[in-house]
Design a binder for these strands. Structure first.
Lengths: 196, 196
DNA sequence: CGAAATCGATAGCGGTCGCTACAGAAAGGG
DNA sequence: CCCTTTCTGTAGCGACCGCTATCGATTTCG
């Protein structure tokens, strides 16, 4: 009895189900995605979903973690890998144009859009914190470049970070309004002209 | 019987009710605002609301018209009044920072945020068209300036218009995430550096 | 082989959604 | 005055929401 689980084994792939759920939440947002939407697109009954994931909220939390590790880390990676904040943001904006319009998944950034207009303040707060954490990541990297002289000494790090975040959020919105990758790349190029 | 209406007069101010409804939709979006939310914040019963406005969708349509004439025209006005597209966008971004954070009403732009994550594709489409119409307004004004030489001949009008729209959408989002007027003004200032 | 454990499907819980039937209240017309 | 017209309040419709009790099916352990 030391070994694995007893009883009837689960008849579906939990990770694949998480993936389907992510697509649904990404497409329609947290609140507009109903349990029947989820069970239908995963292909299981409601009790199986609750047994595997707890409830809608916990499922969404898991989805956010998976999303973060798969699509949300490109900014942090670029900030860590590129030699300057400028180079990192250049890469981030270009990659965002690509990722936000990748036909392999819904358009835009799930963290930006999924909790807009939700009545669950907890869910909204959770994603808002993720966005603000990203802003702080930008700000710290910029501040570091100011310290080394890679950026002008009078640079307003907080404002520059917020500007970059606003452009990213705008690009996410534009992709959901139908902008193509090329159009978003042009936006990115233009946005970079405002960088020192 | 030629003269005015017969029967019991309406016991509430229709325009004031529209205003309350606008605030509610602006704050929570189209779908997350329920009929009970609306009747509660207006202070009337459901049948009165339906008698006065038809249904939720028609009420929202009226709200969008009122919103457009009161808060949505500042961009068009600036584009028409200012001598150049550059000056107009400068004014638009600064005014957006002010309007999006005005404590007299909910933050951000209702046309940008109210129909995100809604299951009603019609409502989403209606606001999307308003946003795209604004983009075209920008593009036309930019094209005119390119024709007169006020902007460089090689300016990509469409890309510049989309960049400006993305910044505005990003600013709207940031205001809903808690950004202050001063912070948005700094974003606007920075964004203008990308303009030719 | 049972026995114990876990899963899945049916069916349905209480609650809220957008919306409305109905009856009484409040106005003008004769 | 009574009659017609229009509005308001109560009360509730069918549909869907998130979620779960129940029970037969399917698996491992002894």
């Amino acid at each position: 009895m030391v070994t694995g689980q007893r009883g009837r084994p689960r008849s579906f792939d939990r990770d694949a189900a998480l993936d389907k759920a992510m697509t649904a939440f990404w497409e329609r947002g947290y609140e507009a995605t109903s349990i029947s939407d989820l069970t239908a697109s995963i292909g299981i009954g409601a009790p199986s979903l609750y047994a595997a994931f707890g409830d809608k909220r916990k499922l969404f939390d898991e989805v956010v973690v998976v999303y973060g590790s798969r699509y949300g880390e490109f900014a942090g990676v670029a900030l860590a890998e590129e030699p300057t904040a400028r180079a990192a943001v250049e890469r981030i904006l270009r990659e965002a144009a690509e990722i936000y319009t990748d036909p392999a998944h819904p358009p835009g950034c799930m963290v930006i859009s999924a909790a807009i207009n939700t009545t669950s303040e907890e869910v909204a707060q959770a994603l808002r914190e993720r966005r603000n954490a990203n802003l702080e990541l930008f700000e710290r990297r910029i501040r570091a470049d100011v310290a080394t002289g890679a950026l002008p000494a009078d640079t307003d790090a907080r404002a520059l970070a917020r500007y970059t975040g606003a452009v990213l959020q705008g690009m996410s919105q534009q992709s959901r309004d139908g902008a193509t990758r090329e159009e978003l790349e042009a936006v990115a190029e233009r946005a970079l002209l405002a960088w020192p």
